[in-house]
């Protein structure tokens, strides 16, 4: 594989209390590619993606063994602050979760918390981000409206724009289309393909077609184990593992 590795999971075990949620997972996220994680619900894929920006720290009584690297930096090293990691690794959540603020404030929030005060710069950045997330045309005349007034699909694109405004390098999508209609889903997928030019992308989905449509690499999770990982094409046409084959041909899930 000739691509540059952006993030890397090495021998990752993860526990909720005493329950082991992930077992010895090794996986690479390549720069400017889309990496998809598929598997039945409860297989650990969402838990796994949340390790990449240390989101699981918010859950009490969890233990992580193994390493997560971002450009060779161990993100869980005691010298590294989670806040700095989250600036570089953004996240889009399962349900659209805009802040109960205006559309403009939603986008500018990430800039402000990172200490940027230059008004003109912020305005420019908000516009750029909204354009990149292909929602500018729909909201440009009502930037001061509450973000909660937008439709679900628009809210999700707003959340993507919010993530883009921060100078992020990796974007994690945790089932971003789970609560959206097919048309909004198609828009988000298009957007993901567009974004991979500039970002490394990880997406969790339980929709296999979605993984096949948008991703370059796919990992198949089952009961906390990474059963198979490889180029999406290979996984979907010639899976090496019987369980993967059973899953993608729809025999369980």
């Amino acid at each position: 594989m000739d691509n540059k590795i952006k993030m890397q999971a090495k021998n990752v075990d993860f526990f909720y209390g005493k329950n082991q949620a992930l077992k010895n997972v090794n996986l690479n996220v390549y720069a400017n590619k889309v990496t998809a994680m598929i598997g039945p619900s409860g297989c650990g894929k969402s838990t796994f993606i949340r390790l990449f920006n240390r989101m699981n720290e918010l859950v009490a009584h969890t233990t992580l063994k193994g390493k997560i690297l971002l450009d060779d930096l161990d993100i869980n090293s005691p010298l590294v602050d989670a806040v700095d990691i989250r600036k570089r690794v953004g996240m889009v959540f399962q349900k659209p979760n805009p802040f109960p603020k205006t559309i403009f404030e939603n986008i500018s929030y990430g800039l402000k918390v990172n200490g940027i005060k230059d008004k003109a710069f912020i305005e420019q950045k908000v516009e750029d981000s909204l354009k990149k997330a292909v929602i500018w045309a729909e909201v440009k005349d009502r930037l001061n409206d509450s973000a909660l007034k937008l439709s679900g699909g628009q809210q999700q694109r707003l959340c993507i724009a919010r993530c883009l405004a921060v100078e992020t390098e990796v974007i994690l999508f945790d089932e971003p289309c789970a609560s959206l209609d097919p048309i909004s889903t198609a828009k988000i997928e298009e957007l993901i393909l567009e974004l991979k030019k500039d970002y490394s992308i990880v997406i969790v989905t339980h929709n296999m077609q979605q993984a096949a449509r948008v991703s370059d690499y796919t990992g198949f999770f089952l009961l906390g184990e990474l059963i198979e990982f490889g180029k999406t094409q290979d996984i979907f046409t010639a899976p090496k593992d019987k369980k993967t084959e059973a899953y993608i041909t729809g025999r369980f899930g």
Partner: peptide, 23 residues
């Protein structure tokens, strides 16, 4: 979810409380 959103943008805990949770 909006606490997580704020943290995922690189806001600190106190920043999240002050700017998102309390308002």
């Amino acid at each position: 979810s909006i606490r997580e959103a704020s943290l995922s943008l690189g806001a600190t805990k106190w920043g999240t409380i002050k700017n998102i949770v309390l308002p």
